[in-house]
Design a binder for these strands. Structure first.
Lengths: 196, 196
DNA sequence: CAATTTGTTGATAGTCACTAACAAATGATA
DNA sequence: TATCATTTGTTAGTGACTATCAACAAATTG
């Protein structure tokens, strides 16, 4: 990793930290990018070069994404829902342990701010596509179309779990909410299977 | 319905029609709201008073929303997935018959334009919430949390069907794509049920 | 059918997210 | 060290969106 990349990442963290402070204090709409840039000691165009949009200052993160590998590993031994549930718990617990304060602050702000939730949609869409690909590779009896659909269903569980987690203020462990949300998903699926 | 509301709806249709023409000709980003307003014979602030944002000029529609009632009616006799599938086919076919040209143009443009797809997310989120409420009322064994989850899963089917429909240029009937997407969804669910 | 009240419109001016262009500075490279 | 490639800040711009207010149209009332 070059010095340039280091500086870039360091600067992005600074900007995100400044933005987090300002947004929490005054709300997303009341803070201008100009103000964030000034607080972080850079110019506004630099912020845009790094993040693209005001929303992505918060949505961005640089936790290394071992998630899909972890899921793929579990997928050799477990059925899809279990593999993803286990992988998610493992990987997100790791991220949370590593930087719990920032994770919580970002999640809270995102849940509370419609514009940020919306800006997160493309991120989830990409995760869905990647997860679909992993599932299609891991389970021979899944066509690509069905694997993508299954990935979408699983993401519903993910979003639900995180929503509930933040809903409780992050007090109960993320792990618990994943287990609950996936249990609900499983129950819905089984009931539906019986009925349909 | 008062004269004022009539004028408002008529004006909104004019604006949407003008926007559709311009967007199709030059692309969403290349057309300013000013230009749309001029083409529709109103002022820009009026466009904003009517639609709120540039995106919602296209996302907006005024087809009367009998969808949930229709689904609720079917829900007394069919299991959830079937009830929603049947209701959707019935109702969306009706809308499509009534104004097929505009429906297709709007759908195509929305699928092709990221900003419009994003602006449609809150609309789908509201539909999900309403559908969840209907399901919770219609099926006694569903808790509210699970009904909401089921609604989210069903919306995955909806989005998939519409995506595939537009993907084929709208040649194959919407009906067919709904049947296929819901069949895939059912298959995923049943496989998953067996595996989990 | 006036007279009054209420809601809607266009004109104007402003804020702010975001981009293009260029010159100065700084990290990579030979 | 000398050259090359990137990154930065400055400046100036576009366009989405909002607030204000005066002119106007429509609902309401006597």
């Amino acid at each position: 990793m070059s010095l340039r990349d280091d500086k870039r990442r360091w600067s992005m963290r600074e900007v995100q930290a400044a933005a987090l402070d300002l947004f929490e204090a005054s709300g997303f709409d009341a803070v201008s990018v100009e103000a964030i840039a000034a607080a972080a000691g850079v110019s506004a165009p630099t912020v845009y070069r790094h993040f693209g949009t005001k929303e992505r200052i918060i949505v961005w993160d640089d936790y290394d994404p071992g998630l899909l590998d972890t899921i793929a590993r579990h997928a050799t031994q477990l059925p899809p829902l279990r593999a993803v549930e286990t992988g998610l718990i493992e990987e997100l617990d790791r991220v949370y342990e590593a930087d719990s304060r920032r994770v919580l602050r970002r999640a809270r702000l995102m849940l509370a701010t419609p514009a940020l939730r919306l800006a997160n949609v493309p991120v989830l869409a990409e995760l869905r596509a990647e997860l679909g690909a992993v599932l299609a590779l891991s389970y021979a009896d899944l066509t690509e179309a069905r694997a993508d659909l299954l990935a979408a269903v699983i993401l519903v569980g993910l979003e639900t779990a995180i929503g509930r987690w933040i809903g409780t203020g992050g007090k109960t462990s993320l792990r618990t909410h994943f287990r609950d949300a996936f249990a609900d998903l499983r129950s819905v699926i089984l009931t539906e299977g019986a009925l349909t």
